[in-house]
Design a protein around this nucleic acid. Structure first.
Lengths: 336, 336
DNA sequence: CTGTTAGCGCCTTCAT
DNA sequence: ATGAAGGCGCTAACAG
């Protein structure tokens, strides 16, 4: 199982030059106290031997791995892969490496991944929590191990953490303002599972929005789905079948919206004519669709990720920054 | 910069129990020669202290990091993020960690990322090469360092490597067969940059397909784009404006297709009526579109990734497997 | 300027 | 069944 590789070490360089390893070590990093000639000679031999410092030894010695972990429910979702992409960029600028973990929204998997990262001695973690994580048992563990963690997007509802998130409520208010200004009063909501904080937030924003415009809350206008395709379709079909069909629907996210669009197609309900959609944008391809939602509430995965990453690197340099909850105002983007 | 963390070590456990570190080390891994009682006592203390083995030390000692690198042009592209997701899964089953690098299709970045991974002493690398990498200068480096590498999707056109790719030509033949069977004879191709092997392969497949059906090759039916939105649009517009406009177009990939769809919309050319598309599938959302291509040549990112990952883990266990080029037959998927 | 020494945490012969 | 000792590759006091 051992690698057969016999990579050159500073020891060999030292032997070859009949000098000490410390001199080699210093020369290699241009330590000022080493003579120019020695430095040159060392570098030459290093070059010849194809020497490369053994990072694993350095990590070990420095007690630092120059590695951060990103943990997400799912890598392949556009929202998250956009985030990873940005974080990788920033990490790269800081000469850090990124290691990756997927939780599939399973709190147990999440715990495992975090423990694995802790074992790897990552210097920090960026986490978008599994949607139904309720206990953050890993927080004291990480705290204890001195590993800073920054949450983003799906963040615990508590003090004493670093978190970056988008303010969904503001987006919802804007959405309802827009719909009302377009003459809508029968506004429905297809929400996500009630277990999610994200769902609660949307619901509250929805209520507040209605209230602000003195619109009545029809309970049959509030649907919930577990985000599966079939449930998404059913939820939309129920709304379509209502005697007083809503004229506008706000949807939990773009994937729900895609299914809702299909439901409308099946029922011959014409989007942006018989019914109007406002969605939470996770889907970068609306501009290619014939019937996009009239507006999307942009959750800015890239921006969230960038802020989270910068915060993490700040924490790695300076571990005792005050806890902070950075809330990005989600922006309403009109597509029509 | 040093972490203040003072995590417990086997030494502390040893001191506490007044036994030697070697005993602790062995007890912790249930070495048969350690008495049951000692083992228990050791484990108990380890538990109490919240001991966790320092992986960086183990990596260092074992000369193995249980880490693999994935290097891709862009993490956020659906094709690649699907691949990452699968690879992360498999790595996880093998108790391996995944580190990530993006090249943005830049050969220099690619080289840097590979060097970084080499420094990290990853146990293996999975690489989808930058689209315009022509020299694979890193191969001897990795060879030398004993780091196995498996290419996937975008692979070097040479012997002596492990590669997984999909057979685009077969897909193209199927596509042309299908189009001809639907009565098309004016079949165009919007290809990618001629520098890409992937473009060449498509072009050859296209020629072969035409030939098979004794169709004439009209040079004006072959467009190329650098994959930018504007070039994609222009290419399609030129085809639309031809006096003998093609009745079907095969497109380099789905993103080109999306733009081509928009070009048609602008020009009031109705898709799946005035003109038909066959694309290479990188886009999982056609089922939600009103005017999808009539068929897609599926490149199976997930499958490619799974095979590549399995191959890599095989190589990590057994470094001298014969070189192999695994070609997946790309499947034509009809959407209409 | 350069060498000596010691040690990071763990594992592994080799003794006992 | 356990301990002692040495070393992985590199760095960083501390001495010269």
């Amino acid at each position: 199982m051992e690698k057969k590789d016999k990579q050159p070490t500073i020891k060999e360089i030292a032997k070859k030059l009949k000098i000490s390893t410390s001199t080699v070590s210093r020369a290699l990093k241009d330590h000022p106290s080493i003579g120019l000639v020695t430095t040159m000679r060392v570098k030459k031999v290093a070059e010849e031997l194809g020497y490369e410092p053994n990072q694993t030894a350095i990590f070990f010695k420095q007690r630092k791995t120059f590695t951060i972990g990103i943990i997400l429910p799912s890598i392949s979702e556009a929202f998250f892969s956009a985030a990873i992409s940005e974080i990788e960029h920033i990490a790269n600028e800081h000469r850090y490496t990124v290691i990756l973990g997927q939780t599939a929204d399973d709190p147990d998997r999440e715990m495992q991944v975090i423990e694995a990262m802790k074992k790897h001695r990552v210097d920090g973690i960026i986490l978008s929590a599994a949607k139904n994580t309720t206990e953050y048992a890993f927080l004291p563990l990480l705290e204890n191990a001195g590993i800073p963690i920054v949450f983003f997007d799906c963040v615990p509802n508590m003090e004493g953490v670093y978190a970056v998130l988008s303010d969904l409520k503001a987006g919802l208010h804007d959405a309802i303002d827009l719909l009302v200004s377009c003459g809508h009063s029968r506004i429905a909501l297809i929400n996500g599972p009630s277990s999610l904080p994200a769902s609660l937030e949307r619901y509250e924003g929805y209520l507040e929005g209605l209230e602000k415009h003195h619109l009545h809350l029809y309970t049959e206008y509030v649907e919930a789905t577990d985000l599966s395709e079939s449930r998404n379709l059913e939820a939309m079909e129920r709304l379509i079948d209502l005697p007083n069909r809503p004229s506008a629907v706000i949807l939990f996210n773009d994937y729900v919206t895609l299914d809702a669009i299909n439901a409308c197609r099946k029922r011959n309900v014409v989007i942006n004519q018989d019914i109007f959609f406002v969605s939470f944008a996770n889907f970068p391809y609306w501009k290619y669709m014939d019937n996009p939602p009239m507006a999307s509430i942009e959750q800015l995965p890239g921006e969230q990720a960038i802020i989270a990453a910068n915060k993490l690197f700040a924490l790695i340099d300076q571990p005792n920054l005050p806890y902070e909850r950075i809330v990005l105002k989600s922006k309403l983007v009109k597509s029509l």
